[in-house]
Amino acid sequence: MKTIVLIKQVPDTETKVKVNPGETDINREGINLVLNPYDEFAAEEAIKIKEAKGGEVVVCTLGEKKAEEAIRTALAMGADRAIRLDGEAFAGSDNYATAKALAKAIEKEGDYDLILCGKQAVDDDSAQVGTLVAEMLGIPSASLVINCEVGDGSVTITREIEGGNQELEIAMPCLLTAQKGLNEPRYPSLPGIMKAKRKKLDVLSAGDLGLGADEAGAAGSKTAIKELSMPPERKAGQVFEGEPEEIVPKVAQLLREEAKVI
């Protein structure tokens, strides 16, 4: 059983995001980068499956050298080896071009049974790359997976839907995107961290993947960021201190008469 885990390195969720006017990326100075939290669920699930069924777990990302820190985290958790896609040709990739590159890398890798990734990256919040990859590979997929049982030639999964759950049986190979609740990701152990440093990590370029000049990066993209902006600042509100019996009815009144929300 070979499972491929797609990951992304992202600013951690405690990051205070700053935007410089006119730029198309956030100010990255001093930002702490981590393995995308939802990808941790994906990595954990892949490693659990390997522990139960044998086989191997291959981690794949598109990102610069620095993204190897996130790769090493997944390897330290127990993944076996990794592929990193890098090079100028990938600059300006939107979700579509990113998915195309990942799909090409997966095709090149071949012989996979399952692909796992987070339901979304907590930086661009697009929640599309996983599903795009599956469609480009021509394999079935399910998003927001909170339970996964691997059977013979198929997986039975539970996914979140509005107001409840849906149980699906999907033929393998297939792709699943992980939602919080799928599992409790393990912390990498010290021996795991030491071992991760020696695990195989291949770096592939657009050329290695056989991607044409019009298939990768900005040229292979269908959308582009025009600019970033900050959300409107919230005006300072009114703060009430004192006896609850006095201040709470006052606020209730304001909600009714001033804010008109109740």
């Binding site: 600013p11 969720t13 990051t15 205070k16 995001v17 935007v19 198309t24 956030i26 907590v122 930086d123 661009d124 919040d125 993209s221 269908k222 959308t223 582009a224 960021i225 025009k226 600019e227 970033l228 902006s229 900050m230 959300p231």
Partner: peptide, 19 residues
């Protein structure tokens, strides 16, 4: 042309299309 929140709303992006 769309505007969408990123970083769960810590910032917004304006995105254009070519397809």
């Amino acid at each position: 042309v769309v505007t969408r929140p990123i970083y769960a709303g810590k910032a917004f992006e304006t995105r254009t299309f070519s397809s």
